[in-house]
C-alpha cells in the first residue's frame, strides 16, 4: 500500500458486486480455467456479440473460432474476470502475458450492457486482480477512432505511448497501484 497520489487506483479485487446505472445487480468474478459453465456462458456472450463492435479482429466470428480464441485466453496464464448479471455473462476483461514480462489488456462488454458503468467496474476489477497478483507493466492497443474506449482507458489511468499508427498504444504501471480492501462498493 502506497500513499503516492499519482499511483493508479485504488482498484477493487474480485468478487466485486455493484448495482449498475440501470439498477441491475452485477458481480465481477475471476474466471478459473476449470470453470466449464463459466466458459460456456462466455461463448454465448461472444456468439451474440454485435459484429460492428468487433475491434482489431477480435472477438472472432463464428462459434468455433470464438471457442479456440477463448481457449487460449482462459486455458493459459491470462487473468480473466467476467461481469455477471444472474447467470448471464455480460462483460469480459483479460490480461494476457506477452512473453516479455508484460501483459496485454482487452475488455469486451455485451452491447445490451453498455453505457451503464459495467465497463468501468469491470476494467477496474481486472486491474485490482492483476495488481494483487503482482502484474506490473500493462499495455493495450486501441483504434484511434474508438473514442469511448480511449476515454475509459484514460479514466482508469492508462497513458498514451505511441499514437503514430492506425492504433494508439497505451500503458500503465500496475506495480505501484493501490488495491481497494473494501469490495462492497
Amino acid at each position: 500500500m502506497t500513499t503516492d497520489t499519482d499511483a493508479p487506483g485504488p482498484f477493487p479485487t474480485p468478487p466485486h458486486a455493484f448495482e449498475d446505472a440501470d439498477g441491475r445487480d452485477i458481480t465481477v468474478r475471476s474466471l478459473a480455467s476449470t470453470d466449464a459453465d463459466g466458459f460456456e456462458s462466455l461463448v454465448e456472450m461472444y456468439d451474440d456479440f454485435d459484429p460492428s463492435m468487433r475491434a482489431q479482429g477480435i472477438p472472432p466470428t463464428g462459434e468455433s473460432r470464438v471457442r479456440s480464441w477463448l481457449d487460449t485466453l482462459v486455458g493459459g496464464d491470462a487473468y480473466n474476470v467476467v461481469a455477471w448479471h444472474g447467470d448471464d455473462a455480460v462483460g469480459h476483461a483479460t490480461l494476457v502475458p506477452d512473453g516479455d514480462d508484460a501483459y496485454e489488456l482487452a475488455i469486451f462488454v455485451h452491447q445490451d450492457s453498455q453505457g451503464c458503468g459495467v465497463g468501468t467496474r469491470l476494467i477496474r476489477t481486472l486491474l485490482g486482480y492483476g495488481a494483487a497478483n503482482d502484474v506490473g507493466h500493462v499495455w493495450l492497443t486501441v483504434e484511434r477512432w474508438n473514442h469511448a474506449a480511449i476515454a475509459l482507458y484514460e479514466k482508469v489511468g492508462f497513458e498514451t505511448m505511441n499514437a503514430e499508427s492506425f492504433e494508439i498504444e497505451m500503458e500503465m504501471d500496475l506495480s505501484t497501484a493501490r488495491v481497494q480492501t473494501d469490495n462492497t462498493g
Binding site: 479482429g57 494476457v96 512473453g99 496485454e104 492497443t141
Partner: peptide
C-alpha cells in the same frame, strides 16, 4: 498480438 488482435 498475444491477445489475438491484428496489428498492421
Amino acid at each position: 498480438s498475444p491477445m489475438g488482435k491484428i496489428r498492421l
